[in-house]
């Protein structure tokens, strides 16, 4: 059974522990600027919304990659960027309609959530269980996916 990140924004307090955990795992420093998961703040409304790649089945980033640098991890289902193969052309960054794959101007490759190989640090770090790692057929996740993908053409499916 594949597992996925389930995000429940109503539980988020905006503390950014997830961003720190993510960046430390991926970059070796606490650096929210390089986190794969981002908490968006709606100040007027008093809301915090963590968001990251949903590992969507369409995998727009993966299909757009001209050099096969984005591959599926068969164990986790995550779409992973292979740094050594990525040439840094950034086509994936404009192709992903969710804005969850970004270009790092220092390393000159793109980066995205890879589910930490199946043990996501953000979920472990979240003090309020706003981010959990659950079985993929979990109802809440389906709703989130449906929202994320609403109106997007279902290409190739």
């Amino acid at each position: 059974m594949l597992r996925s990140l389930q995000i429940e924004p109503e539980k988020c307090t905006g503390c950014l522990q997830c961003e720190m955990a993510c960046s430390y795992h991926a970059e070796g420093v606490f650096n929210t600027a390089k986190s794969r998961i981002k908490v968006f703040t709606f100040h007027e409304e008093g809301r915090f919304v963590p968001y990251t790649c949903t590992q969507c089945s369409e995998a727009w980033c993966m299909h757009a990659c001209p050099v096969e640098a984005i591959v599926i991890n068969e164990t986790t289902g995550a779409k992973e960027v292979i740094d050594d193969i990525c040439v840094g052309c950034k086509v994936c960054t404009i192709a992903c309609p969710f804005g969850t794959i970004n270009y790092n101007t220092e390393t000159k490759v793109t980066y995205k959530c890879d589910l930490c190989g199946g043990d996501p640090e953000c979920a472990k770090a979240c003090p309020t269980q706003a981010i959990t790692y659950v079985d993929s057929d979990h109802g809440g996740l389906e709703r989130m996916r449906a929202h994320a993908a609403q109106n997007l053409p279902q290409e190739g499916a």
């Binding site: 307090t13 905006g14 503390c15 950014l16 008093g46 915090f48």
Partner: peptide, 19 residues
């Protein structure tokens, strides 16, 4: 009170967000 909000890195989140 709308919700509680945290400062950076805070797992307590005592901050009040109000209208």
């Amino acid at each position: 009170l709308t919700t509680n909000g945290a400062c950076f890195g805070c797992t307590i989140a005592c901050g009040r967000i109000s209208t």
